[in-house]
Design a protein around this nucleic acid. Structure first.
Lengths: 139, 139
DNA sequence: GCCTAATTGCGAGTTACTCGCAGGTGTCAC
DNA sequence: GTGACACCTGCGAGTAACTCGCAATTAGGC
């Protein structure tokens, strides 16, 4: 773990709470702040929700985690090194699927060429209907 | 306006408040529930925020308006007939640009072919950095 | 070990909605 | 035009998800 390095470089400290928040994000894959808090409480019951929110923000500034909007409204956090796929959110069943970012390569390039817009495909989910829900349920 | 038709078909009524909410959405283009409420209050000051929220939801069920996630968390509403473009949200300056849905056609097709996922590109914004913010500001 | 600034926990405050209820009012039937 | 009913509205209370200020604590450099 060279996480300390990332933090210290910015004059930040590596506290037990911060380590636990980062570990929780890494372990959970996708997680809302509340889920992270719950996970952290398993090993450090006294941790405050504010602390979780603040650490998530701090870790994001440092670049160790990133947030994504999967729907509803709240943000979902990921470890930065996991962000190699985009999210397919099904509006019917609510499931979240993954797809490699390469699928969007052409799309990203068109946007860059035609609009000068540099897209971060992983930040927002891709909304639609998954194969399971789209197939006419017989009837 | 055949809006009445859409509503009555589902046993719903066309009240003045409902009409105003729909008119406000059409006039504003993109609007948050609060912006809609403010707009409606210009001609009908007594309208309640709950009423705006409920009507937005009702109109969405009927298919006259749709909501999109442009960022932050809250939803933004559009008249259904206006949803012919996708939104390019700049993470730096916060501006919202438009691009025709055709740009995403290939992307949507790949997702459909490879994952059976039927994408609704307009539901979530496309996040990134706009041309203005991306160009190194001289300096 | 000491000192300073970054952090934490806590409680209060804010924002954006959501809900239940009682009275009001479009619509349809006649 | 009149009546009746179910849909709507306004209102106030309630909730979820954060955010903030502050005093006490503690990581890290020396």
């Amino acid at each position: 773990m060279a996480d300390q390095h990332e933090l210290r470089d910015k004059g930040l400290r590596l506290t037990p709470q911060r380590e636990l928040v980062l570990a929780a994000v890494r372990e959970l894959g996708h997680a809302t702040p509340e889920e992270v808090a719950e996970k952290v409480r398993q090993t450090h019951p006294g941790i405050n929700l504010s602390t979780v929110y603040r650490n998530l923000e701090t870790l994001e500034n440092v670049g160790l985690v990133q947030h994504t909007h999967l729907g509803h409204g709240g943000a979902t956090y990921h470890a930065a090194e996991e962000l190699t796929h985009l999210h397919l959110v099904c509006g019917v069943c609510g499931s979240v699927g993954d797809a490699p970012i390469e699928v969007a390569a052409n799309f990203v390039n068109s946007l860059a060429d035609d609009y000068g817009f540099k897209t971060d495909v992983t930040h927002f989910a891709v909304y639609g209907t998954c194969s399971t829900c789209f197939k006419p349920e017989s009837k």
